[in-house]
Amino acid sequence: MAVLNVHERPLPASPDEVGALLDALGSPGDRLWPPGWPAVRFEGPLAVGVPGGHGPVRYVVSDYVPGRWVRFRFTGPRGFEGFHEFGVEALGDRRTVLRHTLVVSPRGPLWPLWPLFVRPLHDAVFRQCLDRAEHALTGTVTRPARWSLYARVLRVCAARLTPKN
């Protein structure tokens, strides 16, 4: 089973402004990744070949065009084959889309966990990333993401099982 999961948001900002958020991912100045989730960390500055991850999800930067696009190839957990990426797309006249794309083939025991556990949490954190991007660029969020009751319950359970950063 291959999964394609896309979250995107048009933002009233230039591609350079949105790209600056992308370039700071995992750094001390990160304004994209939401607090309260396992932090994104890299073993060096964002660059091709640098390993990193968040929580139990491990990856390596496989492609990087500063300010425009970064792709992370999964290296863990075992059975998570694929990638996720952020891209910045100019729409013109100070309008830009920030897009997160996940392409993964969960294998073995991860296959049933994807729809039951991983996807609801994945959707929640990446919608919150888009809220943070909008807030960082405009000072407000027009339509904040709302989590389902199920996602909120999963988040509480996951927080109790995840070591603090």
Results as ranks from 00 to 15, higher is better:
Ala136Asp: 05
Thr142Asn: 14
Arg31Thr: 07
Arg107Lys: 14
Phe72Thr: 09
Pro66His: 03
Pro66Cys: 08
Arg155Trp: 09
His54Glu: 06
Val104Trp: 08
Arg58Asp: 09
Trp111Leu: 15
Gly53Asp: 06
His135Lys: 14
Thr140His: 13
Arg99Asp: 04
Phe72Val: 08
Arg132Ala: 14
Gly108Ile: 06
Gly29Lys: 11
Leu4Tyr: 08
Val141Ser: 00
Gly79Cys: 07
Ala39Thr: 09
Phe126Ile: 04
His84Val: 02
Pro120Gly: 12
Asp93Lys: 07
Arg41Val: 07
His122Thr: 13
Glu17Met: 05
Leu98Ala: 02
Pro12Thr: 09
Thr138Glu: 14
Val97Cys: 08
Pro115Glu: 12
Val141Gln: 07
Arg71Trp: 00
Val60Cys: 01
Ala124Gln: 07
Ala124Gly: 07
Gly139Phe: 05
Arg31Asn: 14
Arg119Asn: 15
Val50Gln: 02
Glu85Met: 01
Asp16Ala: 15
Leu110Arg: 09
Arg31Trp: 05
Arg58Met: 03
Asp93Arg: 11
Arg107Ser: 14
Arg95Cys: 10
Phe126Leu: 08
Leu91Cys: 09
Gly79Ser: 06
Thr101Tyr: 06
Asp131Val: 01
Arg143Thr: 15
Leu98Cys: 03
Gly87Thr: 14
His7Tyr: 10
Pro56Val: 13
Arg94Leu: 08
Gly52Ala: 12
Leu11Gly: 06
Gly29Asp: 15
Gly36Cys: 00
Pro66Gln: 11
Gly79Ala: 04
His100Pro: 02
Pro112Tyr: 10
Ala136Arg: 02
Asp63Glu: 14
Arg132Tyr: 10
Glu17Lys: 14
Val103Pro: 00
Asn5Glu: 12
Phe72Tyr: 15
Val40Trp: 14
Ala13Ser: 07
Leu21Cys: 02
Val125Asn: 03
Gly67Asp: 11
Glu85Lys: 01
Arg119Lys: 15
Met1Cys: 12
Arg78Met: 03
Glu134Met: 07
Val6Cys: 05
Leu110Thr: 11
Met1Phe: 14
Tyr59Asn: 02
Gly44Glu: 05
Thr96Phe: 02
Ala90Asn: 10
Leu98Ile: 02
Phe74Thr: 00
Cys157Gln: 11
Pro120Val: 11
Gly44Arg: 06
Thr138Phe: 14
Arg152Ala: 10
Asp63Asn: 06
Cys157Ser: 12
Leu130Pro: 09
Arg99His: 01
Val61His: 07
Leu21Arg: 01
Gly55Ile: 08
Arg107Tyr: 06
Gly76Asp: 08
Gly44Phe: 06
Ala151Ile: 06
Glu43Lys: 04
Gly53Ala: 04
Arg127Glu: 10
Trp37Leu: 04
Val118Arg: 12
Thr75His: 06
Ala47Ile: 00
Arg155Met: 05
Val70Cys: 08
Thr75Ala: 10
Gln128Cys: 03
Tyr150Asn: 00
Val3Gly: 15
Leu25Phe: 11
Pro28Ser: 01
Val18Ile: 07
Val6Met: 04
Val18Tyr: 00
Val88Tyr: 01
Gly76Lys: 09
